[in-house]
Write a protein that binds this DNA or RNA. Structure first.
Lengths: 137, 137
DNA sequence: TACTAGTTTAGAATAATTATAAACTGGAAT
DNA sequence: ATTCCAGTTTATAATTATTCTAAACTAGTA
């Protein structure tokens, strides 16, 4: 179990004031073994399940955006209408099942690239993501 | 220049009645040398520029969906809030510039994969897409 | 020429997200 | 401790992208 102090430090170190709401959301997101895929909507449900005082949806959005900017989570490429996020910020890849709208991590070493193109002038590569879309056999 | 007949045949062969609107949209999309990236909104602008009779936005959406289902266009993975489409239906990859919200094709042979994972049971791979996100150097 | 299923259309409805502005709070200064 | 205020949260309104609805239209067959 991640200590509250660790979470507070993580927040402080990225210039995020450690409010009750942020600490609670950070716990839900980061205090787990497996990496976690979520949308604003699903996080809202998770966080507000059996809670006395609820965190507003606006705060969920604000916090997700703040955590994304700070690099604690990353947004995943899909062609769903919702934004999907991942607590695994290391470069890795996904299966996407459009039927179930489910993402699954692909272990980094499961994809090996032999050749990638040079970025256009004045630009560098920020991220490289492989998405393998699935369908029924 | 692609002949009107060709376009009509293409529509018919995918069970799409060749209406005035679909023919006009198909011309805009397919009667060009380079492949074309667009959103519903941008296509709407393109199609309705200096037109006497305009095509409604609903028809743009309907037609894009119909063309996508028929496999004449494909949807591109991004994390933009809009859906991006590509007239290049061959498997290929993209640079994405989040600043300009611009996609650029990457030639298929510019990306070489050495190893990809097996799909989960009961599923097969529908599509594999590499997106390289860019940032300023 | 008439008919009908498929299509188009304007506008309403919905879904996801962002903006607004008033109330609240963490933490520095007193 | 108390005051203070910038940063944060909140409910709600606004916006954006997309889908739905149902009436009017049309391609193509009879």
């Amino acid at each position: 179990m991640q200590q509250k102090k660790e979470i507070i430090n993580r927040l402080r170190s990225s210039n995020l004031r450690p409010t009750k709401q942020r600490i609670l959301i950070a716990k839900k997101l980061f205090d787990r073994k497996e990496t976690f895929h979520f949308t604003a909507e699903s996080l809202n449900k998770t966080v507000n399940k059996k809670m006395q005082r609820r965190i507003s949806l606006a705060t969920i959005y604000n916090t997700v955006e703040a955590f994304k900017k700070a690099g604690h989570i990353r947004e995943i490429l899909t062609n769903s209408s919702k934004s999907y996020y991942d607590t695994n910020i290391k470069s890795h890849h996904h299966f996407y099942d459009p039927d179930k709208k489910k993402l699954t991590d692909i272990d980094y070493q499961e994809v090996v690239l032999k050749k990638i193109p040079n970025p256009p002038k004045g630009k560098k590569i920020k991220d490289l993501e492989v998405v393998i879309s699935l369908q029924k056999k």
